Simulated scan of single mutants.
Amino acid sequence: MISPQPAHKEQTSMGTVMSHNAFGMTAEDCLDAVCREVARLESILSRYIPESDVSRINQNAGRNFVEVNPETFNILARSLELSAICDGNFDITIAPLVNLWNIGKNTFTQPPSREIKQVLELVNYRDLILDASSKKVGLSRPRQAIDLGGIGKGYAGDCILEIFRDFGVTSAYSNLGGNVVTLGAKPDGTPWNIGIQHPRLVDSLIGSLAVIDRSIVTSGSYQRFSNDSLGKQFHHIIDPATGYPVESGLVSVTIVSDNSMTADVLSTALFVMGINRGMELLMSFPKTEAILMDSEEKVFVSKGLKGLFQSNKNILYTILE
């Protein structure tokens, strides 16, 4: 019988506070394993840990190929596949621009346009070379670097679901800071209700989603932002084509999918591409849905979420047929 009370653990990893919850006899041991797995993934995928696979690739950019963990190799290979499918609107070689803008730091400010133009030339996912036979990886040019911030938590979410299953857990969810994964339904059989943060109103929601066995990832301009000397607000999502924060007309993108890693990538790609091109891309991914809010705070919901999305009061939305 499933315990009426969940096991619960929190951890700080991958630049955010994560919350894990599971039900059942093995729930406590399961969440211990989940926390260990997330820490392990951070140790190989974070570019802020000098000994990680990603850091070693970046340190050897333009010089040497680096042998990496087969798992890292597979993540990078899938990243390149998705970058191509998204026509470069998702690009893991964005790191030099992230560094230039000081994203994630208290000094997040707009750099001089000349420097943006120079650094932009370093961003090109095609310059990440993978040798499948040796499992070696290299970047073509010095100063290039990769950043898995747009896919790493998504991959971690998929790994967490596997651990839930390995422990025989049938009801669980994890919140990885903007990324949510759910296994099964609640213990009473009803769907999980996942809130979607309003990008402009603190402690307010656009609405909620009723989901079972789904991954939900949101990218929004609320997460990190700064103001320039003229008071213009810049958010943290950089357009790999321009080198500047995205101005696509969208302020929030939520993706609902069976695969957390895919959802992570698409939330960024659609944010960059805007509603029309983004929804066209979404058609390439079966069983994948979206909730979009534009700069006028109009909300658009893909038809597969009809009946599953409940808007907050005063929020009107349109179903995209």
Rank of each mutant, 00 (worst) to 15 (best):
A145I: 00
W101N: 07
V98R: 01
V137T: 08
T72N: 08
P70V: 10
K136R: 15
N102K: 15
E121P: 00
Q144C: 04
R114Q: 13
E71L: 14
D91M: 02
I103E: 01
E71S: 07
L122Q: 09
Y125D: 01
I75M: 13
N74H: 13
S140A: 14
I116Q: 05
L82I: 13
L130D: 08
L139G: 04
S113E: 14
L76I: 13
N74M: 12
K135Y: 08
L122Y: 06
F108L: 11
E81C: 09
G88N: 00
L120H: 05
T93S: 12
S79D: 14
R141I: 08
L139Y: 09
T93E: 02
P112C: 07
L122R: 10
N124A: 07
A132H: 13
N69Q: 11
F90R: 00
L80Y: 02
A145W: 00
R126Q: 13
P96A: 04
W101H: 08
I116E: 04
I85S: 02
S113C: 02
P96Y: 01
K136Q: 15
L76F: 12
F90V: 11
P111K: 04
K117R: 12
A145S: 12
L82P: 02
L80R: 09
V137Q: 06
I103H: 01
V137D: 03
L139K: 05
N102Y: 04
C86T: 15
L82M: 15
E81Y: 12
D91V: 02
T107I: 08
N69R: 10
V123R: 05
R141D: 03
T93D: 01
N99P: 00
V137M: 05
L76C: 09
D127H: 15
L128R: 09
L76R: 13
L130P: 08
E121L: 11
N99C: 08
I92S: 05
L80W: 05
D131V: 05
E71R: 11
A84P: 00
A77V: 06
A95M: 09
A145V: 00
E81Q: 13
N124I: 01
I92D: 04
Y125T: 07
P70I: 11
Q118G: 05
E81N: 12
L97D: 08
V98T: 10
L82D: 00
K136V: 07
L97Q: 08
A84Y: 11
G104E: 05
G88F: 03
A95H: 06
Q118K: 14
R78T: 08
F90D: 12
E81S: 11
C86H: 07
A95C: 04
N106L: 13
G104K: 07
L139W: 09
P142C: 06
L80S: 04
L128D: 04
W101G: 08
T72R: 08
R143F: 10
R143V: 00
L80A: 04
L97Y: 04
T109K: 15
K105H: 14
K135M: 12
L139D: 03
V119F: 01
L76T: 11
L128S: 06
F108W: 02
R126G: 02
P142K: 09
R78E: 12
E81T: 13
